[in-house]
C-alpha cells in the first residue's frame, strides 16, 4: 500500500508523509489551530489547578502557624531532587522537540525516552515520600493519625498536600503515557520537519506539568 507518494525521504531516514485533514486549507492552518487548541487546554489545566491553589492560599492565610509547622515535617531534600529531575526532563523534552523539527529521528526518540525515565524517577521519589508519610500516620483527611507534635488543623495542610501533589502525579503519568506514544510514533517515522504537531503539543503539556511543580515545591516544602 505504501506508494512513493506516502513516503518522504529526508537525509537517510524515511518518514510517513502527512496529509492535511480535509477541513483545513493549509498545513499551517492545521498546525496553528492545534497549537492554539492546546494552549486553551493548558488554560483549562491552569484554572483547574487554580482552584486548589486558591484553597491553599485561603488556608495558608487562615492557619499560618499550622502551615509553618507542617512545612517543617516535609523533606525538602526529596522535594529538591524531584524539582531537579523535572527540570532535567523539561530539558530533554525540548531537545526532543528540537530534534523532531530537524527530522532527527534517533535523537528525538532517545530524548523522549529520557524524559519518560525522568518522569519515572520523579514517581519513584514521590512513592518513597508518600510511604514515609503514611508510615508516620500522615494520611489525608479523616485517616490523619499523626502521633508527633502538630496543630489541630494540620490535616488541612496534608490533605491539600496529598490532593495537589496527587493530581500533579496523575498529570505526570498522563504526560509520560503521551510521550511514550509520541516516541513510538516518532520511531515509526511519523514526525519530521513538516509535521510534528503531536510532539510539540505533548511537550507543551509536559512543560506545564513542570510549571505546576515549580510552584508546588516552594508551597509545601520551602515556605515556612
Amino acid at each position: 500500500m505504501a506508494t512513493e507518494k506516502q513516503i518522504t525521504k529526508i537525509g537517510n531516514d524515511f518518514f510517513k508523509t502527512r496529509f492535511v485533514a480535509h477541513h483545513f486549507a493549509t498545513a499551517d492552518q492545521e498546525f496553528d489551530a492545534c497549537k492554539f487548541g492546546m494552549w486553551m487546554f493548558l488554560l483549562t489545566e491552569i484554572m483547574l489547578f487554580g482552584g486548589l491553589f486558591v484553597a491553599w492560599v485561603v488556608y495558608r492565610l487562615w492557619y499560618p502557624e499550622t502551615f509553618k509547622h507542617c512545612a517543617q515535617l516535609m523533606d525538602w531534600k526529596l522535594g529538591l531532587v524531584n524539582t531537579c529531575i523535572l527540570i532535567l526532563s523539561s530539558l530533554t523534552m525540548s531537545l526532543a522537540i528540537r530534534a523532531v523539527k530537524m527530522s532527527d529521528k534517533k535523537t528525538a526518540v532517545k530524548m523522549m525516552l529520557a524524559t519518560v525515565l525522568c518522569g519515572a524517577g520523579f514517581l519513584i521519589v514521590k512513592y518513597f515520600e508518600y510511604s514515609h508519610k503514611f508510615h508516620l500516620g500522615i494520611f489525608p483527611g479523616a485517616n490523619f493519625s499523626f502521633d508527633g507534635e502538630h496543630y489541630s488543623n494540620a490535616h488541612h495542610f496534608f490533605s491539600l498536600y496529598f490532593v495537589m501533589t496527587g493530581t500533579h502525579v496523575l498529570h505526570v503519568i498522563i504526560g509520560m503515557t503521551a510521550i511514550l506514544w509520541c516516541s513510538y510514533r516518532a520511531a515509526r517515522g511519523h514526525f519530521y520537519k513538516d509535521y510534528y504537531t503531536p510532539v510539540e503539543l505533548t511537550g507543551m503539556y509536559w512543560h506545564l506539568v513542570e510549571l505546576i511543580w515549580i510552584f508546588l515545591f516552594p508551597m509545601f516544602y520551602l515556605i515556612k
Binding site: L48, G50, G51, A55, L160, V163
Partner: peptide, 25 residues
C-alpha cells in the same frame, strides 16, 4: 466555558473527596 468550567471540575472533585473523607476543605 474554557475559563470557568475547569474550576467547576476541581470544585466537584474536591466535593467528591470531601464525601470520601480525603479532604476537609
Amino acid at each position: 466555558q474554557v475559563l470557568a468550567t475547569p474550576v467547576l471540575g476541581i470544585t466537584l472533585l474536591m466535593l467528591i473527596m470531601e464525601k470520601l473523607d480525603i479532604i476537609h476543605v
